[in-house]
């Protein structure tokens, strides 16, 4: 993802990313409770106001831009909870990060020729 990653295209949650993404991941962690999910669904902007997201992180969440969320320090295990309130299949999230459409992702990464 960046030259600072030790293994190419592999954003490990190290000190730099954990610091950068802390508020974003904390926001997502809030969706672990029924109360958090209800608040997010009722008024997403108001829910996001509770956390100190950067403008870029906030925009990425609004756009459901999974690649950008990870670039800004989001870790998939946390931000995946957004897909629990706004359903998105995990493979589509993977394809978005790889910069591919779903059929190409399934075929070239996972060796599948159907959309299964």
């Amino acid at each position: 993802m960046t030259s600072e990653d030790r293994i190419p295209d592999t954003p490990l949650l190290d000190r730099r990313r954990a610091n950068m993404g802390y508020a974003l991941n904390k926001m997502a962690m809030g969706l672990s409770s029924p109360e958090g999910r209800a608040a997010f669904l009722a008024d997403e902007e108001a829910y996001l106001d509770r956390f100190e997201l950067s403008d870029a992180q906030r925009a990425a969440v609004r756009a459901r831009d999974w690649r950008e969320m990870v670039r800004l320090g989001g870790n998939l295990f946390f931000i995946l909870k957004i897909s629990a309130v706004d359903p998105t299949p995990i493979r589509e999230i993977g394809a978005a990060q790889a910069g591919m459409d779903l059929p190409e992702f399934l075929k070239t990464r996972l060796g599948k020729v159907t959309n299964g």
Binding site: T10, V70, N75, G94, Q97, A98, R109
Partner: peptide, 13 residues
């Protein structure tokens, strides 16, 4: 498996 970054979807059967 890899779920994150541009290498997402990496598997090595």
């Amino acid at each position: 498996h890899q779920l994150q970054g541009a290498r997402a979807g990496f598997i090595n059967p």
